[in-house]
Design a protein around this nucleic acid. Structure first.
Lengths: 207, 207
DNA sequence: GTCTATAAGGGGATAGAC
DNA sequence: GTCTATCCCCTTATAGAC
């Protein structure tokens, strides 16, 4: 359809470029302002696209929000692809935590992009976008679960919920208290916890 | 001002009763629909108060939201007061976790009332309600910190962030995945973690 | 104190010119 | 493909009758 490249000779790549700009702009602006308080005009301005033209690329606001979710999924797989290059699964998980802590200022100001979006979409009855948000989070959970599984630890799914849950929790608290230090201190605890996990002894909980 | 009782002889207690009904109704409806998608009409209907009459008790929508936060703080202190009756601080914390798990169906459907509200209010630039949400979460953090302190554990503030963060995280995941089982399984891990904490050995992280 | 009618403003979406 | 003008609905908040 209205894909980025290779379609017509006359239209050039501007169409795809504008569409992509709208996607990333939506992801950014929605993260900062929330879905409900973000207007089409806000997105158009951020993407440097004329207001009325937005509807040529996305028929509804919901489609724009769905595009933001896709964008988050894309950024997530960029990160996990990079971490997959590490030989030790434990180092991959520690690298993930390090990436989270590296985003501490953004987290303190606006929270986790995917997590806060999931919270907001849950309150939207129509459209089924809430389910889509859950799928993006599932991508992360599954990747983390594979790492715990590769380490030979018992209940890798439960451990994945604990690690990702800890991230969502510390992001929310850091955001609510406006304190990036929460990300740093809790991140240190997570790293120590990951180091302490042993395939032999089954440490039960979140820490 | 327009307080619940003791003012005029002629006005009776209906004024306070309506005001209270509006507060609890706001807390409930906002939890389910979110702030932005909740209209004054929704709240009026839930509280069984005529729409136009709402403005007699609360001048703006923001005042209603602030009232919802107060309501959450009140419900929180009801819970901690009950837990304070237990002699052992560890049992108090385990009772807190049990209370969270007991609310698993609500959490899976709508998330943590205070946490989701904090996320939403953070996106509201004006009014400073985001700071108020942080204060309510602080109340819980401080209470939890006092329990860890009473147990003689090192870094009680860090432990409090870990425990409350774990709750916020599991609520968010349970909600995003629409799975109450997350609350149960992660709650079990938290209980085991609390049992394992020892004043002598310093277990570093969240679990 | 209680309630109705309505003013005022904003935002999503569309029609159609260029 | 691009952009402007505009329709229409919804929501907050107020004025003022009862």
């Amino acid at each position: 359809m209205t894909d980025s490249k290779g379609s017509g000779a006359g239209s050039r790549a501007t169409a795809g470029s504008k569409r992509q700009r709208l996607m990333t702009a939506t992801a950014q602006v929605v993260h900062r302002q929330g879905v409900e308080r973000t207007t089409i005009a806000d997105i158009a301005r951020a993407a440097d696209v004329p207001v009325g033209n937005v509807y040529y690329y996305f028929k509804t606001k919901d489609e724009l929000v769905a595009a933001a979710l896709t964008e988050h999924a894309r950024q997530l797989s960029t990160l996990t692809d990079r971490l997959d290059a590490l030989p030790d699964p434990r180092d991959r998980l520690k690298g993930l935590v390090a990436a989270w802590v590296g985003q501490r200022d953004v987290a303190a100001r606006y929270g986790c992009p995917t997590g806060t979006l999931a919270v907001e979409l849950d309150k939207r009855a129509e459209g089924g976008l809430d389910v889509e948000a859950g799928k993006v989070i599932r991508l992360l959970l599954d990747w983390v679960e594979r790492q715990f599984g590769a380490l030979g630890l018992p209940d890798p799914a439960g451990l994945a919920l604990t690690l990702v849950g800890a991230y969502q929790g510390m992001s929310l608290l850091s955001n609510a208290l406006r304190d990036p230090g929460v990300m740093t201190s809790q991140g240190d605890r997570l790293l120590a916890w990951l180091d302490s996990l042993d395939a032999a002894s089954a440490v039960s909980h979140p820490g």
